[in-house]
């Protein structure tokens, strides 16, 4: 596509500054909202400040908070669970979403109504999704357990949320249920943009359905997909509300995530210093992941 620069008829000072004037308000507002918590956390991550012990930060303790977080018995399991959750969640949601998108792309009567309804899970508040699945997973009379028994795969005796083999998967399932439709709609929108003449030409060349998917459709939708993939990955990386409502990280540490550990340190244990150190460890990890991803995925983007 042509990205011709709007040629200023009469170059003047205002026009040169215009883009910055337009962008500045958003940057200033966002910076003022984001810098405060980040700096607050940075400063306090080096202080002993546990609200259970004192209302004020007590003393500078260097990297002790960081050491405490990284050496805590829950850190590695939390990190592992978080990575499992975000990697498998993103992959499953993308793959399922693509399958649903391909299904929707068949222009048959009823498809557009279905597509309109399909977005509904994504519009529900995560807290509500948590309650919905807690109800579905209830070991005493939840629909999920009954259905699983019906198809000959009864849930573990401890319940879906009570067994270390299924607890994390159950959280993942709830997230997949909520966000697969989002992938489906976005990828469907991408598929729509594949020009029919291109498909027709490929078909005349004798390309199989698989070839068309891999060689033509997928490369075109990937451009949209790179954004939502990183968005979802990071949201999954920060998962805490589903964990809070469904398992509180149990049994044991089986479904504990970094986000939940952070919640526990800050809003349950009131340890501001420790939670601040956790915040920065997460922020640094997220930034490394985003930078790496951006370097690869956005390489060929036109900005």
């Amino acid at each position: 596509m042509s990205h011709a620069q709007v040629a200023p008829a009469r170059p003047n000072r205002l026009r040169a500054w215009l883009p910055f004037l337009l962008i500045a308000p958003s940057v200033i507002l966002l910076l003022s909202l984001v810098l405060y918590p980040l700096l607050f956390a940075l400063k306090n991550s080096f202080y002993f400040w546990n609200l259970q012990r004192s209302a004020e930060p007590l003393q500078f303790i260097g990297l002790a908070n960081y050491k405490m977080v990284l050496s805590g018995p829950e850190f590695l399991p939390s990190l592992t669970n978080t990575l499992i959750l975000s990697v498998t969640g993103t992959i499953i949601e993308f793959a399922l979403g693509l399958a649903v998108a391909l299904l929707l792309a068949n222009r048959l009567p009823g498809m557009s109504v279905s597509r309109a309804l399909l977005i509904l899970p994504t519009t529900i508040a995560p807290v509500v999704v948590g309650f919905l699945f807690r109800y579905m997973y209830d070991p005493a009379g939840g629909l999920a357990g009954w259905l699983l028994t019906l198809i000959g795969a009864p849930p573990p005796a401890e319940g879906i949320l009570g067994s270390s083999t299924t607890a994390l998967a159950a959280i993942l399932f709830a997230d997949v249920w909520q966000w697969t439709p989002f992938f489906a709609i976005v990828l469907y929108a991408g598929l729509l943009s594949v020009s029919p003449s291109l498909i027709e030409a490929a078909r005349l060349d004798g390309a199989s359905a698989w070839t068309m998917l891999w060689r033509i459709k997928l490369p075109l939708v990937m451009k949209t997909a790179v954004i939502i993939i990183i968005l979802r990955f990071m949201q999954l990386f920060n998962t805490f509300d589903l964990v809070l409502v469904l398992t509180k990280g149990g049994p044991g540490l089986s479904s504990r995530t970094l986000g939940y550990t952070l919640y526990q340190q800050g809003l349950v244990d009131f340890n501001i210093g420790l939670a601040s150190a956790s915040t920065w460890i997460i922020v640094i990890m997220v930034n490394i992941l985003v930078t790496l991803y951006a370097a690869i995925a956005f390489k060929n983007w036109e900005w």
């Binding site: 546990n50 401890e158 990280g249 044991g252 089986s254 244990d269």
Partner: peptide, 23 residues
Amino acid sequence: APIYTTLEGIFGLELNKVLAGQS
């Protein structure tokens, strides 16, 4: 005790692990 919540978090986790057979 002044840091009761922290201690409860530690104890609660380990008790849960014992029941779950993880410890």
